[in-house]
């Protein structure tokens, strides 16, 4: 999915602590003025190309979030801003939240049969305003993705503790070192 022209974003607070919301508003201030890139916040999801979730999606706001998500016309992209939206954040296992955008997609697929759209994950607690700009630039393929998964597997011949500590196999030399002190002597 690629948007060649201006990207209009509908910003939805889905149970956020306001940290990410302030950072989203920050990028429209003169210092990081993203309107120079054609990015704009809109008041209605029907006018938007992208929907930005900030927050772990609480149970209370789940029906509203689904409604707002379905109101965004196709083609659309989703920006998951902050650690809460990406993976549930510090509340990932709470009963009161759904637990991130991935769980939200599962519910969408089960209940409404909607396939998940292109999603940009922007981790941070809250993400720096520049990190959000980078995420939006990534959505428009203006920059290359730096973050890649890394898997390291240790290769070693030793897998036995007995070879590490050879004297461990016999226990006799332990015993004389223990002194039992009898009370009352």
């Amino acid at each position: 999915m690629m948007f060649k022209k201006s990207l209009w974003v509908f910003h939805l607070n889905s149970g956020s602590c306001n940290g990410c919301d302030i950072e989203v508003l920050n990028i429209f201030t003169p210092k990081q003025d993203v309107e120079r890139l054609g990015i704009k916040l809109v008041g209605s999801p029907r006018h938007a190309d992208a929907i930005a979730f900030t927050g772990p999606i609480t149970r209370e706001c789940l029906p509203k979030a689904i409604e707002a998500f379905m109101a965004v016309p196709e083609p659309k992209i989703v920006l998951a801003i902050g650690s809460c939206a990406c993976g549930g954040g510090i509340w990932f296992d709470s009963y009161a939240v759904i637990g991130g955008i991935k769980e939200f997609y599962k519910i969408l697929k089960e209940k409404h049969g909607i396939e998940p759209p292109t999603t940009i994950y922007i981790p941070g607690c809250p993400p720096k305003p520049e990190a959000i700009i980078y995420g939006v630039a990534l959505a428009r393929k203006a920059v290359e993705q730096k973050q890649k998964s890394e898997i390291f597997v240790e290769e070693s011949d030793i897998d036995d503790a007995a070879t590490l500590f050879k004297e461990a196999t016999s226990t006799r030399h332990f015993i004389p070192k223990i002194e039992v002190i009898k009370r009352g002597e």
Binding site: C86, Y121, P123, S149
Partner: peptide, 12 residues
């Protein structure tokens, strides 16, 4: 800080 990724697997 430029950690944005297009898939969740890239964040591990």
């Amino acid at each position: 800080f430029e950690l944005a990724a297009a898939s969740e697997e890239d964040l591990h």
